[in-house]
Amino acid sequence: MAILSTPRSAVQLASKGRPLREHLFRIALLASLAIAIAFLAMLIVYVVEEGWPRLDSTLWENQPSIRRPETAGIQSGILGTLWIIGLTALMALPTGILAAIYLEEYADKTKWYNRLIELNISNLAAVPSIVYGILGLGMIARWMQFGFTVMTGALTVSLLVLPIVIISAREAIRAVPPSIREGSLALGATQWQTIYRQVLPASVPGIATGSILALSRAIGEAAPFLMLGAATLVRFNPEGVWSTFTVLPLQIYSFIARPQEEFAILAAAAIVILLAILLLMNSVAIWLRNRYQKRW
């Protein structure tokens, strides 16, 4: 019987113990994760604890007030933030997604101007938000004479998040295998049909996640609004795109700048609301991703 040609002693499947390096690597990974989560948890615990006395309905029912900090609310800030995000989503998402489709599906990457555009978009994503604030002030508020309105704010923030939307949408579109496009085109579909009915549906999870993360970034911004001169203690809600407004981060900033203890509590409570909006948006992103998840 010459079937078992390998001598039995040569078969060694028993573990020789994993090298130390592998253990160290695992520990480093877990430690990084632990640090990130610990800080997030600390942050949440801290603001909730700090803001707890004010986390009731007066917070979102009342308007801010300098004289009565113990009952002052942040309604104008919440609504201002929602207005800005809604309008930004309406303006930046379609533009960004269409730009991404152009760059991924139509642009001839051998042409210098397309490469230049790509390079510039990556650079734009890294420009500090305060610079967009200056741009918004000079171009939109003053030159276009839109003033310090919701529209000005939303346009400025749209410019700010546009590069991020484009980059994340491009990545999602690029992740759709070329074989899907080939399969569609080989059936006599036009390029637009292929994009609209195959590529876009398949990249919805990625595009949605990227878009929501981009908008989340916009929610947290204070700097460009500061630059735009949005008032901090607006005591009325925005009534339309042409009304004056404030946003939560700006309100938080102005509360913290005040000496009274009540304002510190109010600021913490406002931060909890801001975090809640952010977490809500991120969970929508996760839900969308799971809902439309594709396997290849």
Partner: peptide, 25 residues
Amino acid sequence: GMVFQKPNPFPKSIYDNIAYGPKVN
């Protein structure tokens, strides 16, 4: 028409895979 080396069904239902060609045409 063309059939590729690697099967490349669309990430849709079997029905939609077949119906796609006639629809776009």
